[in-house]
C-alpha cells in the first residue's frame, strides 16, 4: 500500500572516516503517511540497489524506540521534530507532501563517522566501563525485599535509567557534551542505596573518562534535555555536579 506523499531527501553521504562527505539529493515518491521514517529509507535503498547504486548506510535495530541504535539528525534536530520520539518511531504523518528533509549523522568529535549516517559511539561504553555499575559479583546478593527503597527514589532512579544511550544529547549540544548521558547513570546509582558505597569513586572516574573521550563541557543550554527521546532530566546533571564536587572535596 503506497501513499501519495512526495518527499525530497538531502542525505549526508560519506564513504568512510578517511574521506570527506557531501549531501546527495533523492526524490522519494509515493510515501505513505503510515510509513516510519526508516521505512522510507528502506524504500529509497531498495530503489538504489536496483539502480546499481550504493544504498544509504544507517544504524537501526529494534525499530521500537528502545535499543538506542538509530540516530539521524533530521532537519537540524536529533531524532527529528517530535518530542519523546526516536527516529525509528517517527512516522511520515509528521511531515507534509513536498517536504524537503535534510538528514545528517550525529556530529561530534567523540563520535567519528563510520559511513553515511552511521557513527561510532563506543565512547559511551567506555564511560560505563569506567564506573557505571555496582560492584556485585553474581551470587553475592541478599534477598531482594530485604532492602526496601522508597517508591519516590525508585521511580526517580528508573526515570534516569530509562536512557537508551543513543547519543542525541551529544548531537544536540553545541559543545558535544556527554553530561546528560553520564549524569543519568551516576544519578540512577546514587539514588539507590545499593549504589552508595561507590558513589564518590564512580563520579570521579566517569567524569574523567568522559573528558578523556573528547566530549565538550556543559554550558547549561538545556538542548540535551529538550532533544532527549526518553525525557532524561537536566536535574541529573545538577546531581552529577554535586556528586563530583562532593567527591573531589573529600578525595
Amino acid at each position: 500500500m503506497s501513499g501519495n506523499m512526495n518527499i525530497t531527501l538531502k542525505v549526508w553521504r560519506q564513504k568512510n572516516n578517511n574521506e570527506s562527505g557531501k549531501f546527495e539529493t533523492y526524490n522519494v515518491p509515493n510515501v505513505s503517511e503510515d510509513m516510519s521514517f526508516l521505512e522510507m529509507f528502506d524504500v529509497l535503498n531498495e530503489r538504489l540497489i536496483i539502480e546499481g547504486k550504493d544504498p544509504v548506510a544507517f544504524d537501526h535495530d529494534c525499530r521500537e524506540g528502545i535499543c538506542g541504535m538509530c540516530s539521524m539528525f533530521i532537519n537540524g534536530r536529533p531524532h527529528g521534530p517530535l518530542k519523546g520520539v526516536t527516529t525509528c518511531q517517527l512516522h511520515m504523518r509528521s511531515f507534509k507532501n513536498n517536504d524537503t528533509i535534510v538528514v545528517e549523522p550525529w556530529r561530534a568529535k567523540a563520535f567519528p563517522v563510520i559511513k553515511d549516517l552511521m557513527v561510532n559511539r563506543s565512547a559511551f561504553d567506555r564511560i560505563i566501563a569506567s564506573g557505571g555499575y555496582i560492584s556485585v559479583n553474581t551470587g553475592n546478593a541478599q534477598d531482594a525485599n530485604s532492602l526496601p527503597i522508597s517508591k519516590v527514589n525508585a521511580d526517580e532512579a528508573f526515570a534516569a535509567a530509562a536512557c537508551i544511550g543513543c547519543g542525541a544529547c551529544v548531537a544536540a549540544c553545541k559543545n558535544a557534551s556527554a553530561m546528560l548521558f553520564t549524569s543519568a547513570k551516576i544519578s540512577q546509582l546514587a539514588l539507590l542505596p545499593q549504589g552508595v558505597p561507590e558513589r564518590q569513586q564512580r563520579a570521579l572516574n566517569m567524569v574523567a573518562q568522559m573528558d578523556a573521550e573528547g566530549f565538550g563541557s556543559c554550558t547549561n543550554t538545556g538542548a540535551c534535555e529538550a532533544e532527549c527521546p526518553k525525557g532524561i532530566s537536566l536535574s541529573n546533571i545538577a546531581r552529577m555536579n554535586r556528586e563530583f564536587l562532593g567527591a573531589s572535596l573529600t578525595a
Binding site: 534477598d143 525508585a154 521511580d155 539507590l192 545499593q194
Partner: peptide, 12 residues
C-alpha cells in the same frame, strides 16, 4: 536478588 543488587530499578 541479583538484579536488585545491581541497581535494577524494579517497580515498587
Amino acid at each position: 536478588d541479583q538484579c536488585v543488587a545491581q541497581g535494577v530499578p524494579f517497580a515498587r
